[in-house]
């Protein structure tokens, strides 16, 4: 997860944009992970759509019981966090460490709000009897949002490592920052699809 570019860009003092280096931003193996992860979630999305088509009434009834307000707030929270990650990466690229650090702290704060809001969503639902065992819709709902939540948790750890990297190193590893940012944007994209499939689709 560290820097693949280390060997390929020696003696570069001023920060160079990934496009200028002629490669994808961050570690190329992270792109392997991103594409694979999208395919895995894609498998879940296809499965969900297939069973939704077969049990349309059941899935609609389940969807109607979800908390759309918290879902919407969570979408905004995650998008805002992603924006700060993008801004923080841009600042790190031009060597503005103080600004970069401030933006990554903001990204972490917004990102950390997501699991907390999720608890406010899940706990009342579970206490109302909307558990994974209730029906197929709720099983899909908890499995998919649960897997996504694991990704968020991992992403928060990654952002902490980015902050440490930017804070402690005079010349932060831009490749590492980009790798983490790529991952966080993927988490964001997955949530957008989940939000559309689970909360919005009628």
């Amino acid at each position: 997860m560290t820097d693949v570019a280390r060997g390929s860009t020696p003696q570069v003092d001023k920060p160079v944009r990934a496009e200028a280096r002629g490669q994808v931003p961050g570690d190329s193996s992270m792109w392997f992970f991103v594409i694979g992860d999208l395919l895995i979630f894609g498998g879940y999305f296809v499965g969900y759509m297939y069973y939704r088509g077969r049990n349309h009434e059941l899935f609609l009834a389940g969807q109607a019981q979800l908390n759309l307000d918290i879902g919407t707030v969570n979408t905004i929270v995650l998008l805002t966090s992603s924006l700060f990650v993008a801004l923080g990466t841009a600042a790190a690229r031009v060597g503005n460490r103080a600004e970069s650090l401030r933006r990554f702290w903001m990204a972490l704060a917004f990102g950390a709000a997501f699991p907390i809001l999720k608890l406010f969503e899940w706990i009342p639902e579970i206490s109302r009897g909307l558990t994974p065992g209730k029906d197929l819709f709720f099983m899909y709902y908890y499995v998919m949002t649960g897997l996504h939540l694991c990704h968020v948790a991992l992403g928060l750890v990654v952002i902490c490592f980015i902050i440490r990297n930017v804070k402690e190193s005079v010349a932060p590893k831009i490749s590492f920052v980009e790798t983490g940012a790529t991952y966080w944007h993927m988490v964001d994209v997955l949530w957008l699809v989940l939000f559309a499939l689970l909360y919005l689709m009628r």
Binding site: V4, S29, F33, G36, D37
Partner: peptide, 13 residues
């Protein structure tokens, strides 16, 4: 290879 590490994380998933 690093990508194998990421794949192994999916094993965990």
């Amino acid at each position: 290879p690093k990508w194998l590490g990421y794949y192994t994380v999916w094993q965990y998933v």
